[in-house]
């Protein structure tokens, strides 16, 4: 049975419709950096009811790098339980430091910075064999703290081989969520200035809240940045696949407000943030979700930032 002229016309129309409609569905995400399957991009907050972030924020790759270096984890699996290890490799920290700093400088209050990076991690401390592992999540700055929600922490990196093509991820990507807690095979470790997010009387193992102050000692060990990189200036650009040393580029995003600043020496959050945090703290105390001691301690902590 031959397809008649009507069938052929219909097929041609279908192809035409695809062509014409497709630009309307174009992705609106802004790519900051991309290399192969690794990407850092701006995306809307995952929860419409979430409080706006304090974006844009001016910071430097070194500051973000020092913060990421502080993140430590330990595997839960008995067979692989090891001493605490870094969440990210130095290469991941280098790439993420630049891209997240650029992203924070360009993000609007309703945008998060999503990341999906791949690092070669030793199979165990001292082992010669390394495996490629994925860490993915979302980053935002609010109330004077950098928040990182992890959807994946060193999960296996695999591509599905479908008829010789390896374009498809074996496991779905997970950028973390404010609402849904992601289960991990690792425990993210708290440290001085690094704590898990507290919610509903408990803590979340996938959400870390980091005070930029805590990274100050680590900053001294990092190589100083060129003056031009100290403050990331908002700039428009185009996304690209790059194997060159990374220069983050942002597209389709222009800062609407002058960036607030994470200073290397001190953080000066807006007064409204202090008010909001005190109100939030008071609300938690009134609902008896935190003890009087915690309330007093936290209140002092917040007021000290003034």
């Amino acid at each position: 049975m031959q397809p008649g002229p009507a069938t052929r016309s219909w097929l041609a129309s279908l192809a035409f419709a695809f062509c014409c409609l497709s630009p309307a569905f174009a992705a609106s995400d802004a790519t900051i950096w991309k290399r192969g399957d690794q990407i850092v991009q701006l995306a809307p907050q995952d929860d419409a009811s979430a409080l706006p972030n304090d974006h844009p924020v001016s910071t430097t790759p070194n500051e973000i790098g020092a913060i990421l270096e502080m993140l430590r984890m330990r595997f839960l699996d008995d067979d692989t339980e090891t001493a605490p290890a870094s969440v990210f490799t130095p290469e991941e920290i280098d790439n993420l430091g630049k891209a997240i700093a650029a992203g924070l400088g360009h993000a609007t209050p309703n945008q998060d910075i999503l990341f999906h990076v791949i690092g070669a991690h030793r199979t165990s401390p001292g082992a010669w064999l390394k495996r490629n592992r994925v860490s993915a999540g979302r980053v935002f700055f609010r109330d004077g703290h950098l928040n990182i929600i992890f959807g994946q922490v060193q999960t296996p990196y695999r591509k599905k081989n479908l008829y010789g093509q390896t374009d498809e991820d074996f496991y779905p990507r997970n950028y973390g969520s404010r609402a849904a807690v992601a289960e991990h095979d690792v425990v993210l470790l708290a440290a001085d200035g690094v704590r898990p997010y507290e919610a509903n009387g408990g803590v979340r193992n996938d959400w870390m809240v980091i005070s930029p102050h805590a990274a100050t000692p680590a900053l001294a060990d990092r190589e100083p940045e060129p003056q031009s990189a100290a403050i990331i200036a908002p700039a428009a650009g185009v996304s690209r696949n790059s194997s060159e040393p990374m220069e983050p580029m942002v597209e389709k995003s222009t800062p609407r407000d002058a960036p607030s600043e994470i200073s290397r020496d001190r953080v000066t959050p807006p007064a409204t943030n202090i008010e909001r945090r005190l109100e939030e703290l008071k609300r938690l105390r009134e609902r008896e979700l935190i003890s009087e001691e915690v309330y007093q301690a936290r209140m002092k902590e917040i007021l000290q930032e003034l």
Partner: peptide
């Protein structure tokens, strides 16, 4: 080395 089968190494 705790090799995981079929991981990208």
């Amino acid at each position: 080395a705790n090799v995981y089968a079929f991981e990208s190494m």
